[in-house]
Structure formats: C-alpha cells, structure tokens
Amino acid sequence: MTAARVRGTALDVSSLPTYGFSHRSIVWWATLGMIAVEATVFALAIATYFYLRSHATTWPLAGKPPDLLWGTINTLVMLGSLLPNHLAKKAAEKDNVSRARLWMAVCLAMGLLFLVIRIFEFRSLNTGWDTDAYGSIVWTLLGLHTVHLVTDFYDSAVLTLLLFIGPLEGRHMQDVSENAFYWYFVVASWLPIYLVIYWAARLH
C-alpha cells in the first residue's frame, strides 16, 4: 500500500511513490505557472491589437488583411498534432516507454511541419513590422506564438532524444506527460491568435 502510516509519534512516509502525474507533481505546478504568465502576455497583446484598432479609421491601416490559406492549413496541422500528443501523454502515464517514444516522434514530425508552414504564414501577412502600428502588432502576435512553437519543439526534441538514448527513470514519464500538457497550451493559445490575426482584420 502506498500511503503514510503512523508509527508511535512518527508519520512514516517511506512507502510513498517517488513521482506522480498531473497536480501531484511539483513540475506540473511550475508549468501551470508558466502557462498563466504566457497566457497573460497573449491576452495583453490581443488587447493591444484591439486598442490600436479602436483608434484607427480603417483596419488594416493600409493594404489588405493576411491571406487565409497558410494560416488555416497550419491551424489544422496544429489541431491534428493534438492526437499524437494525447497518445504520448497516455502512453507515458501507463509507463509504456516504446509507445511514448513513437508518439513523441510523430508529434515532432508535425512540429517540424508547422514550423515550416509558419514561414509561409509570415510571408502572407501582407504587411511588415515597420509598415505601421497594425503591422507591428500583427508581427508581434505571430512572432510571440512562433517563439512558443520553437521552444516547445526544441524541448520536445531533447526529451524525445532522451527517451531514445538517455538513462531513463520513471520520472521521465512524468516529464513526457507535462510536456504534452504544455503542448496543449501552445496549440490552444493559437486559436484566439489565429482568429485575431486572420479574421479580426476582415470584420468591420
């Protein structure tokens, strides 16, 4: 039985597990803290977008809204990556290393795909960061999210490498689970940003 037991005036905790998933893990709490911070940054950047828009007579200030094609394709790719991400998380929580390896690798392949598509997204914004305030905030929104894609891709890659070659212990399954948790956030935060960048510039 994995529980604390009272022995005399002492509470014996020696039989407790040495790691746990979700809110049982302290690293999960740190990840949640980072998510709170980054979600606040995204929310404020979106608020900035609408603040600037509320002061403009036309929006976009000059030129036309971003082309829909690449951004929409990328949204679908990101949503699609949730499936291998979910399967990697479940595999890790069942302590199945080989499945976790497999689905992490699939996730990474999709990550590579959406990073490449992201380049085309920047090319279809139809504005530059130094064109006007509209261009500045659109580039900042897309840039902020891209930073998350790059960092999440990189740390997932390091973790996947560890799964293949590194010295492994049970706690690394917890890392896989938390990595998937963060991936959810990176995809989920994209949806409002996608709507703002591609559709708020079209609504009048």
Partner: peptide, 26 residues
Amino acid sequence: VMLASTALIMDRLVGTHFYNPAEGGD
C-alpha cells in the same frame, strides 16, 4: 510591463510603431 518594454525597445531598435501616432500607434 515586459510586453510594454519589449514594444518600446522594438520601436527604438527595429522600427515598429506601437507608440508612434504618425503610423497608427498610440
């Protein structure tokens, strides 16, 4: 404040227009 100061330093260093009223900033 991190967002604000990053926007400020970008206005100063790479020519964004967050705070430049002439180009739609505020």
